[in-house]
Design a protein around this nucleic acid. Structure first.
Lengths: 178, 178
DNA sequence: AGGCGATGTGTACGCGCGTACACATGGCTC
DNA sequence: GAGCCATGTGTACGCGCGTACACATCGCCT
């Protein structure tokens, strides 16, 4: 019995997809699991997203702003005399402290681009956005390298299951800044 | 009929698994696809590797030495006065130049550790091995940071589909070295 | 020689998957 | 208000999957 004209059906499906990935990983993502999570019929998910790639692109778009938002929210970043490395290391810590789940989610979608060309533009855009945030404070090469270093540090924390060493991150990031 | 007493059945199954991941990604890995690739019956793969996790651990162990080997083969690294950053950037270039396929394979297995705790010790060991190679030339913190930076640079190349800029990598790595 | 455990083989079951399609229904245009 | 199209719904099919298990065969130990 119809819940006809559900204007943000799409949005609710994307939200459900994000929750599914958060809980079960990309391997657990299917039209059916998303349908169940969003409490819509199977046909509805296939109607709005013909392929899982489309659904992942939408999910990556929506969830990917997480870290950028954390970074952008740091006022210290805009201050020209501020401690850039310290601010970035702190942002990283803040993001990781929010729990493995959130970070894992964003990273898993991010890393899925390795095998799914459809996700690459979104992933690349993400890295570019971050670099753009850094642009006012440094040259493009440094910004790019800082983003790469932050990605590598995150990767090590998440991959090895170890804890985040903010002081180490600050020191490493500081060396990148000429 | 039977190919009885096949002494390195195990090894051949692992090799087949690596070829499957290289071609189709981890998503394409199953007892059946591996059995077909290795030309052994299904039961044989389940006998030697009860779960796919076991199979992936074996595959990661065997394939993961790729980059370490490239790095270790560079004589310039052991030379105390050599250009460490330049050597590392060149090693990265050599590894990536061997084709996306090889790098994608190793990275995909490496990144799978994000969601599969069983792979984490292997992935962590991999990063440690690399850091150990660098140890004679720098302090531990720097070695760790260099590995993180190399991981981040690789990630960006593979994720964005862009090309590798060795000069940029050399410059960034050089800044890490005090 | 005998036997036993490790290894190899074939088949079956139940499940969740993507996909396809036919049908219902609501909003919008004319 | 008639009709059309976007949207929503339910069901079915075929496939590949992990798993389980019974049976064959071999190596090796006594």
């Amino acid at each position: 019995m119809p819940r006809r004209h559900d204007p943000d059906r799409r949005r609710r499906i994307i939200d459900a997809a994000i929750r599914v990935v958060r809980r079960a990983g990309i391997a657990g993502l299917s039209h059916r699991t998303v349908a169940a999570e969003a409490d819509v019929p199977l046909g509805s998910t296939t109607y709005h997203f013909a392929t899982l790639d489309e659904l992942m692109v939408a999910a990556l778009r929506q969830s990917g702003e997480g870290f950028c938002r954390v970074v952008a929210a740091r006022e210290g970043l805009t201050d020209p005399g501020g401690d850039l490395a310290g601010e970035l290391a702190a942002a990283l810590g803040e993001w990781l402290a929010a729990g493995r789940a959130g970070a894992e989610l964003e990273y898993e979608l991010y890393l899925a681009a390795l095998r799914r060309p459809a996700l690459r533009p979104v992933a690349a855009g993400w890295a570019d956005d971050l670099a753009a945030l850094l642009a006012p404070r440094t040259d493009p090469l440094t910004a790019r390298a800082l983003v790469a270093l932050m990605d590598g540090i995150c990767l090590h924390v998440l991959l090895t299951g170890g804890s985040y060493d903010e002081e180490y991150a600050r020191e490493a990031l500081a060396r990148m800044i000429p």
